Simulated assay, not measured.
Amino acid sequence: MINQVYQLVAPRQFEITYNNENIMDNNVVIRPLYLSICAADQRYYTGSRNEEVLEKKLPMSLIHEAVGEVVYDSKGVYKVGTKVLLVPNTPVEKNEIIGENYIPSSKFRSSGYDGFMQDYVFMNYDRIVEIPDDIDLSVVSYSELVTVSWHAIQRLEKRSISKKDSFGIWGDGNLGYITAILLRKLYPSSKIYVFGKTDFKLSHFSFVDEVYYINHLPENLNIDHGFECVGGKGSQSAINQIIDVISPEGSIALLGVSEYPIEVNTRLMLEKGLTLIGSSRSSALDFKEVALFYKENPDVIEKLSLLKGKEFEVRNINDAINAFESDLSTSWGKTVIKWIL
Protein backbone atom coordinates (compact mmCIF):
# COMPACT_ATOMS: atom_id res chain seq x y z
CA MET A 1 0.00 0.00 0.00
CA ILE A 2 1.07 3.60 -0.54
CA ASN A 3 1.64 5.45 2.73
CA GLN A 4 1.89 9.23 3.09
CA VAL A 5 4.68 10.44 5.38
CA TYR A 6 4.87 14.07 6.51
CA GLN A 7 8.56 14.91 6.76
CA LEU A 8 10.43 17.95 7.98
CA VAL A 9 12.79 18.79 5.10
CA ALA A 10 14.15 22.06 6.49
CA PRO A 11 13.41 24.18 9.56
CA ARG A 12 9.67 25.04 9.61
CA GLN A 13 9.10 23.28 6.29
CA PHE A 14 7.11 20.04 5.91
CA GLU A 15 6.65 18.04 2.72
CA ILE A 16 4.73 14.86 1.91
CA THR A 17 6.60 11.82 0.68
CA TYR A 18 5.17 8.46 -0.36
CA ASN A 19 6.37 5.01 0.74
CA ASN A 20 5.27 1.70 -0.70
CA GLU A 21 4.63 -0.66 2.25
CA ASN A 22 3.89 -4.39 2.29
CA ILE A 23 1.00 -4.94 4.71
CA MET A 24 1.76 -8.68 4.80
CA ASP A 25 5.14 -8.08 6.46
CA ASN A 26 5.62 -9.05 10.10
CA ASN A 27 4.12 -5.77 11.31
CA VAL A 28 0.87 -4.37 12.67
CA VAL A 29 -0.58 -1.46 10.69
CA ILE A 30 -1.49 1.40 13.03
CA ARG A 31 -3.42 4.57 12.36
CA PRO A 32 -2.09 7.38 14.64
CA LEU A 33 -4.95 9.10 16.47
CA TYR A 34 -3.33 11.58 18.85
CA LEU A 35 0.22 12.92 18.83
CA SER A 36 2.06 15.12 21.31
CA ILE A 37 4.85 17.59 20.56
CA CYS A 38 8.10 17.21 22.50
CA ALA A 39 10.91 19.72 23.06
CA ALA A 40 13.19 17.48 20.99
CA ASP A 41 10.75 17.78 18.05
CA GLN A 42 10.90 21.54 18.40
CA ARG A 43 14.69 21.58 18.24
CA TYR A 44 14.44 19.99 14.81
CA TYR A 45 11.45 22.07 13.71
CA THR A 46 13.10 25.38 14.59
CA GLY A 47 16.54 24.30 13.36
CA SER A 48 18.14 24.87 16.77
CA ARG A 49 20.25 21.71 16.43
CA ASN A 50 23.60 22.34 14.77
CA GLU A 51 23.73 22.23 10.98
CA GLU A 52 25.72 19.00 10.92
CA VAL A 53 23.01 17.16 12.84
CA LEU A 54 20.21 18.62 10.72
CA GLU A 55 21.98 17.71 7.51
CA LYS A 56 22.45 14.15 8.74
CA LYS A 57 18.91 13.56 10.02
CA LEU A 58 16.63 15.51 7.68
CA PRO A 59 14.34 14.84 5.90
CA MET A 60 12.54 13.10 8.75
CA SER A 61 9.03 12.66 10.07
CA LEU A 62 8.70 14.19 13.55
CA ILE A 63 6.98 13.17 16.82
CA HIS A 64 7.73 10.17 19.03
CA GLU A 65 4.79 10.52 21.45
CA ALA A 66 1.59 8.97 20.11
CA VAL A 67 -1.39 6.70 20.58
CA GLY A 68 -3.17 4.94 17.73
CA GLU A 69 -5.47 2.12 16.72
CA VAL A 70 -4.94 -1.12 14.85
CA VAL A 71 -6.28 -1.05 11.30
CA TYR A 72 -4.75 -4.30 10.03
CA ASP A 73 -3.00 -7.31 11.51
CA SER A 74 -2.22 -10.13 9.09
CA LYS A 75 -1.67 -12.55 12.02
CA GLY A 76 -4.91 -11.67 13.78
CA VAL A 77 -3.21 -11.05 17.13
CA TYR A 78 -4.95 -7.69 17.53
CA LYS A 79 -8.53 -6.86 16.60
CA VAL A 80 -9.16 -3.95 14.27
CA GLY A 81 -9.84 -0.87 16.39
CA THR A 82 -7.66 -1.93 19.32
CA LYS A 83 -6.15 1.18 20.94
CA VAL A 84 -2.40 1.03 21.53
CA LEU A 85 0.51 3.04 22.88
CA LEU A 86 3.30 3.33 20.31
CA VAL A 87 6.86 2.59 21.45
CA PRO A 88 9.33 4.82 19.55
CA ASN A 89 12.48 2.93 20.52
CA THR A 90 13.21 0.17 18.01
CA PRO A 91 16.15 -2.13 18.82
CA VAL A 92 17.76 -4.06 15.98
CA GLU A 93 19.84 -6.37 18.16
CA LYS A 94 19.58 -8.01 21.59
CA ASN A 95 21.95 -7.55 24.48
CA GLU A 96 21.68 -9.55 27.70
CA ILE A 97 23.31 -6.81 29.75
CA ILE A 98 22.55 -3.44 28.14
CA GLY A 99 18.96 -2.17 27.99
CA GLU A 100 17.39 -1.74 24.55
CA ASN A 101 17.26 2.05 24.94
CA TYR A 102 21.03 2.20 25.56
CA ILE A 103 22.20 -0.01 22.70
CA PRO A 104 23.88 2.38 20.21
CA SER A 105 22.38 0.60 17.20
CA SER A 106 18.77 1.03 18.40
CA LYS A 107 16.63 3.28 16.24
CA PHE A 108 14.45 5.97 17.76
CA ARG A 109 11.55 7.57 15.95
CA SER A 110 11.87 11.29 15.23
CA SER A 111 15.61 11.10 15.85
CA GLY A 112 17.18 10.01 12.58
CA TYR A 113 14.28 7.65 11.94
CA ASP A 114 10.77 8.60 10.78
CA GLY A 115 8.38 9.46 13.62
CA PHE A 116 4.61 9.15 13.83
CA MET A 117 3.56 11.96 11.49
CA GLN A 118 2.34 9.44 8.92
CA ASP A 119 -1.01 8.25 7.63
CA TYR A 120 -0.11 4.79 8.93
CA VAL A 121 2.81 3.38 10.87
CA PHE A 122 4.02 -0.19 10.55
CA MET A 123 4.98 -1.47 13.99
CA ASN A 124 6.60 -4.65 15.22
CA TYR A 125 4.36 -6.62 17.57
CA ASP A 126 6.60 -5.88 20.54
CA ARG A 127 6.46 -2.13 19.86
CA ILE A 128 2.78 -1.64 20.70
CA VAL A 129 1.01 -1.88 24.06
CA GLU A 130 -2.74 -2.34 24.27
CA ILE A 131 -4.79 0.10 26.36
CA PRO A 132 -8.52 0.25 27.24
CA ASP A 133 -10.94 1.86 24.77
CA ASP A 134 -12.42 4.11 27.44
CA ILE A 135 -9.16 5.82 28.44
CA ASP A 136 -8.66 9.47 27.44
CA LEU A 137 -6.54 9.04 24.32
CA SER A 138 -5.59 12.71 24.11
CA VAL A 139 -4.02 12.51 27.59
CA VAL A 140 -2.19 9.21 27.10
CA SER A 141 -0.77 10.52 23.81
CA TYR A 142 2.16 11.83 25.89
CA SER A 143 2.68 8.52 27.70
CA GLU A 144 6.18 8.28 26.23
CA LEU A 145 7.22 11.10 28.57
CA VAL A 146 5.60 9.22 31.46
CA THR A 147 7.66 6.13 30.58
CA VAL A 148 10.85 8.21 30.59
CA SER A 149 10.18 9.26 34.19
CA TRP A 150 9.06 5.73 35.11
CA HIS A 151 12.29 4.30 33.68
CA ALA A 152 14.43 6.74 35.68
CA ILE A 153 12.60 5.88 38.92
CA GLN A 154 13.10 2.14 38.35
CA ARG A 155 16.81 2.68 37.70
CA LEU A 156 17.16 4.67 40.92
CA GLU A 157 15.22 2.05 42.89
CA LYS A 158 17.62 -0.69 41.74
CA ARG A 159 20.85 1.26 42.20
CA SER A 160 20.28 3.29 45.36
CA ILE A 161 20.45 2.63 49.10
CA SER A 162 17.29 1.36 50.81
CA LYS A 163 16.55 4.55 52.76
CA LYS A 164 13.92 6.41 50.75
CA ASP A 165 12.10 8.60 53.24
CA SER A 166 12.32 11.70 51.07
CA PHE A 167 12.75 12.69 47.43
CA GLY A 168 13.53 16.03 45.88
CA ILE A 169 12.55 16.94 42.32
CA TRP A 170 14.33 19.85 40.67
CA GLY A 171 12.28 21.26 37.80
CA ASP A 172 8.71 22.58 37.79
CA GLY A 173 7.94 21.69 34.17
CA ASN A 174 6.28 18.74 32.48
CA LEU A 175 8.87 16.11 33.41
CA GLY A 176 9.08 17.29 37.01
CA TYR A 177 5.29 17.18 37.30
CA ILE A 178 5.08 13.63 35.93
CA THR A 179 7.91 12.47 38.18
CA ALA A 180 6.11 13.90 41.20
CA ILE A 181 2.89 12.06 40.27
CA LEU A 182 4.71 8.74 39.96
CA LEU A 183 6.75 9.14 43.14
CA ARG A 184 3.64 10.08 45.12
CA LYS A 185 1.99 6.81 44.04
CA LEU A 186 5.02 4.55 44.24
CA TYR A 187 6.27 5.86 47.60
CA PRO A 188 3.10 6.98 49.43
CA SER A 189 4.79 7.25 52.84
CA SER A 190 7.80 9.25 51.60
CA LYS A 191 8.12 13.02 51.62
CA ILE A 192 8.07 14.56 48.13
CA TYR A 193 9.59 18.01 47.65
CA VAL A 194 9.60 20.01 44.42
CA PHE A 195 12.09 22.77 43.67
CA GLY A 196 11.33 25.39 41.03
CA LYS A 197 11.17 29.09 40.29
CA THR A 198 7.77 29.83 38.69
CA ASP A 199 4.64 30.45 40.79
CA PHE A 200 2.23 29.36 38.06
CA LYS A 201 3.99 26.06 37.50
CA LEU A 202 4.54 25.26 41.17
CA SER A 203 0.84 25.81 41.84
CA HIS A 204 0.11 22.53 40.01
CA PHE A 205 2.04 20.49 42.60
CA SER A 206 -0.64 20.60 45.30
CA PHE A 207 -0.28 16.85 45.99
CA VAL A 208 3.37 16.97 47.15
CA ASP A 209 4.53 17.72 50.70
CA GLU A 210 6.33 20.99 49.97
CA VAL A 211 7.35 23.22 47.09
CA TYR A 212 10.44 25.39 47.38
CA TYR A 213 11.82 28.25 45.33
CA ILE A 214 15.36 27.45 44.29
CA ASN A 215 16.64 30.81 45.57
CA HIS A 216 15.01 30.45 49.00
CA LEU A 217 15.79 27.03 50.43
CA PRO A 218 15.26 26.49 54.16
CA GLU A 219 18.30 25.87 56.34
CA ASN A 220 19.16 22.29 57.32
CA LEU A 221 17.10 20.83 54.46
CA ASN A 222 18.00 17.22 53.68
CA ILE A 223 16.68 14.74 51.13
CA ASP A 224 17.56 11.10 50.59
CA HIS A 225 17.52 11.15 46.77
CA GLY A 226 17.12 13.72 44.02
CA PHE A 227 15.74 13.94 40.49
CA GLU A 228 17.17 16.53 38.10
CA CYS A 229 14.43 17.40 35.59
CA VAL A 230 15.73 20.80 34.50
CA GLY A 231 18.04 20.30 31.55
CA GLY A 232 19.81 22.96 29.50
CA LYS A 233 21.96 25.56 31.20
CA GLY A 234 19.96 25.28 34.40
CA SER A 235 21.01 21.68 34.98
CA GLN A 236 24.37 22.77 36.38
CA SER A 237 22.93 24.82 39.24
CA ALA A 238 20.23 22.18 39.84
CA ILE A 239 22.71 19.31 40.17
CA ASN A 240 24.99 21.29 42.44
CA GLN A 241 22.07 22.33 44.63
CA ILE A 242 21.04 18.69 44.92
CA ILE A 243 24.60 17.79 45.93
CA ASP A 244 24.41 20.48 48.64
CA VAL A 245 21.21 19.20 50.29
CA ILE A 246 21.29 15.46 49.65
CA SER A 247 22.19 13.07 52.47
CA PRO A 248 25.38 10.97 52.36
CA GLU A 249 25.21 7.99 49.97
CA GLY A 250 22.15 9.38 48.25
CA SER A 251 21.49 8.97 44.53
CA ILE A 252 20.78 11.61 41.90
CA ALA A 253 18.77 10.66 38.82
CA LEU A 254 19.70 12.80 35.83
CA LEU A 255 16.86 13.28 33.33
CA GLY A 256 17.49 16.75 31.89
CA VAL A 257 19.37 17.05 28.62
CA SER A 258 22.05 19.71 28.22
CA GLU A 259 23.59 20.47 24.83
CA TYR A 260 26.84 21.59 26.50
CA PRO A 261 29.12 20.18 29.23
CA ILE A 262 28.43 21.39 32.76
CA GLU A 263 30.54 21.71 35.91
CA VAL A 264 29.72 19.55 38.94
CA ASN A 265 30.97 19.88 42.52
CA THR A 266 32.89 16.61 42.57
CA ARG A 267 34.61 17.40 45.89
CA LEU A 268 31.33 17.37 47.84
CA MET A 269 29.98 14.54 45.73
CA LEU A 270 32.96 12.34 46.66
CA GLU A 271 32.82 13.48 50.27
CA LYS A 272 29.20 12.31 50.53
CA GLY A 273 29.70 9.15 48.47
CA LEU A 274 26.91 10.06 46.05
CA THR A 275 25.73 8.13 43.01
CA LEU A 276 24.81 9.83 39.74
CA ILE A 277 22.41 7.76 37.62
CA GLY A 278 22.02 8.74 33.99
CA SER A 279 18.74 7.88 32.30
CA SER A 280 17.62 8.24 28.70
CA ARG A 281 14.41 7.34 26.90
CA SER A 282 12.59 4.13 27.84
CA SER A 283 11.93 0.57 26.75
CA ALA A 284 8.88 -1.45 25.67
CA LEU A 285 8.81 -2.92 29.19
CA ASP A 286 8.40 0.57 30.64
CA PHE A 287 5.39 1.14 28.36
CA LYS A 288 3.83 -2.13 29.51
CA GLU A 289 4.37 -1.25 33.16
CA VAL A 290 2.96 2.26 32.70
CA ALA A 291 -0.13 0.86 30.93
CA LEU A 292 -0.69 -1.45 33.92
CA PHE A 293 -0.04 1.48 36.27
CA TYR A 294 -2.82 3.45 34.52
CA LYS A 295 -5.20 0.52 34.96
CA GLU A 296 -4.44 0.16 38.66
CA ASN A 297 -4.43 3.92 39.32
CA PRO A 298 -7.13 5.55 37.16
CA ASP A 299 -6.83 8.81 39.12
CA VAL A 300 -3.37 9.25 37.58
CA ILE A 301 -5.00 10.00 34.22
CA GLU A 302 -6.92 12.85 35.87
CA LYS A 303 -3.69 14.32 37.25
CA LEU A 304 -1.93 13.90 33.90
CA SER A 305 -4.82 15.69 32.18
CA LEU A 306 -3.69 18.93 33.88
CA LEU A 307 -0.66 18.76 31.59
CA LYS A 308 -2.77 18.86 28.46
CA GLY A 309 -2.48 22.20 26.72
CA LYS A 310 -4.04 23.17 23.42
CA GLU A 311 -5.41 20.47 21.14
CA PHE A 312 -5.13 21.01 17.39
CA GLU A 313 -7.00 19.16 14.68
CA VAL A 314 -4.44 18.60 11.95
CA ARG A 315 -5.90 18.06 8.49
CA ASN A 316 -3.06 19.42 6.37
CA ILE A 317 0.51 20.69 6.52
CA ASN A 318 -0.55 24.23 7.44
CA ASP A 319 -2.43 22.87 10.46
CA ALA A 320 0.71 21.02 11.54
CA ILE A 321 2.78 24.20 11.24
CA ASN A 322 0.21 26.10 13.32
CA ALA A 323 0.40 23.46 16.06
CA PHE A 324 4.21 23.60 16.19
CA GLU A 325 4.27 27.42 16.15
CA SER A 326 1.72 27.63 18.96
CA ASP A 327 3.64 25.10 21.03
CA LEU A 328 6.71 27.35 20.95
CA SER A 329 4.91 29.89 23.15
CA THR A 330 3.56 27.30 25.59
CA SER A 331 5.09 27.68 29.06
CA TRP A 332 3.30 24.75 30.69
CA GLY A 333 1.86 21.48 29.48
CA LYS A 334 1.80 19.42 26.31
CA THR A 335 0.44 20.45 22.93
CA VAL A 336 -1.73 17.63 21.55
CA ILE A 337 -2.49 16.95 17.89
CA LYS A 338 -5.65 15.13 16.82
CA TRP A 339 -4.32 13.45 13.70
CA ILE A 340 -7.08 13.46 11.07
CA LEU A 341 -5.06 13.91 7.89
Rank of each mutant, 00 (worst) to 15 (best):
K158F: 08
K158T: 08
K158W: 07
R159Y: 14
R159G: 12
R159C: 11
S160L: 02
S160E: 01
S162K: 12
K164C: 04
K164G: 04
D165E: 13
D165R: 07
S166A: 13
S166H: 15
S166C: 15
S166M: 14
F167H: 04
G168I: 03
G168E: 07
I169N: 06
I169W: 02
W170A: 12
W170N: 02
W170H: 08
D172T: 08
D172K: 06
D172C: 12
G173C: 09
L175W: 09
L175T: 07
L175V: 15
G176Q: 12
G176W: 05
G176R: 06
G176K: 08
G176N: 11
G176Y: 08
Y177F: 13
Y177C: 00
Y177T: 00
I178D: 00
I178H: 05
T179A: 02
A180P: 01
I181E: 09
I181L: 11
I181W: 05
L182V: 11
L182M: 13
K185G: 10
L186M: 15
L186F: 07
Y187V: 13
Y187F: 15
Y187M: 15
P188E: 12
P188M: 04
S189T: 15
S190W: 03
S190V: 05
Y193L: 07
Y193A: 01
Y193W: 06
V194Q: 05
F195S: 05
F195G: 02
F195C: 10
G196F: 00
G196I: 00
G196L: 00
K197F: 03
K197V: 01
T198R: 08
D199E: 11
F200L: 15
F200H: 15
F200I: 15
K201C: 01
K201W: 02
L202H: 12
L202F: 14
L202E: 11
L202N: 08
S203D: 02
S203K: 06
S206W: 07
S206R: 09
S206H: 07
F207N: 13
F207E: 13
V208S: 00
E210Y: 13
V211K: 07
V211S: 06
V211T: 11
Y212N: 07
Y212W: 09
Y212F: 13
Y212V: 02
I214K: 03
H216D: 10
H216G: 08
L217S: 06
L217K: 05
P218G: 08
P218R: 10
P218E: 07
E219H: 11
E219S: 10
E219G: 09
E219M: 11
E219Q: 14
E219F: 09
E219W: 07
